[in-house]
């Protein structure tokens, strides 16, 4: 056997090892990619639906989504854009563009009889990493039907509470505007007196920054879609 202390052996060892690892990982990544993408798409569909319903079973999501949701894309003036798949739009990138160049997806839900809900995607920053979600609005474009939030790296038990029912259920029925201006607010800390206040939701203890992030992304999303809302109203 070769001298395992020699340079030649060491370098050879590294080259062979790197090759084996690289090839096997690359093979695995390409093999698993379609499955991972399918999982991600399904997760997104589930999130969209969860802003208006609480379907958890992913097989039901897959089946019901095309029936319940109509996807449209609009531009900054609120006019429909043809030939773009709403589902494939990365909202994070769109929100970074100047407002006039954005292509904004809208998911229209028509599951509850005649009343339609307009679901708009949100994206913003939490404390540690990005947060995103969907907010569904009634056709007055002011009342919240429901929300679904998710995050990448918020602290479990603190900022990660944005995904929990107790937090999200508070948004139902709240109003974003008070008739004149944007008035929606997420309060600092948990246990605030919010009863009867239609513009306020209770915050999370120890996660004020995440709460502010949610507030900001709702405001940003809401304001970006104003032109579209006006065309539908």
């Amino acid at each position: 056997m070769a001298d395992i202390n020699s340079n030649k052996y060491t370098i050879g060892y590294v080259v062979v090892m790197t090759l084996i690892v690289a090839i096997s990982l690359a093979f695995m990544a390409t093999e698993l990619k379609p499955r991972q993408q399918a999982e991600e798409a399904l997760e997104k569909k589930k999130q969209i639906l969860n802003s208006v319903s609480d379907i958890q079973d992913k097989s039901i999501v897959e089946k019901e989504y095309p029936k319940l949701i109509k996807e449209v894309v609009v531009d900054a003036q609120g006019k429909p854009v043809e030939g773009v798949n709403a589902f494939d739009i990365d909202i994070k990138k769109e929100y970074r563009k100047p407002a006039s160049e954005r292509q904004l997806p809208v998911y229209i839900y028509s599951g509850d009889g005649n009343a339609k809900s307009y679901i708009i995607p949100l994206h913003g920053n939490g404390l540690w990493d990005e947060i995103w979600g969907f907010v569904a609005l009634k056709d007055d474009f002011n009342t919240i039907v429901g929300t679904s939030f998710d995050h990448k790296g918020e602290t479990p038990g603190l900022g990660a509470e944005i995904t929990k029912d107790w937090f999200q259920s508070q948004f139902v029925g709240k109003k974003l505007e008070d008739g004149k201006a944007y008035a929606f607010d997420i309060l600092k800390g948990r246990g605030n007196a919010i009863e009867g206040k239609v513009h306020l939701v209770d915050g999370m203890s120890g996660a004020t920054i995440t709460g502010d992030g949610v507030e900001d992304m709702i405001e940003k999303g809401y304001k970006s879609y104003q032109a579209y809302f006006k065309t539908v109203k």
Partner: peptide, 8 residues
């Protein structure tokens, strides 16, 4: 990768 594909 496995978790991402099979236990998202």
């Amino acid at each position: 990768q496995m978790l991402k594909a099979f236990a998202y």
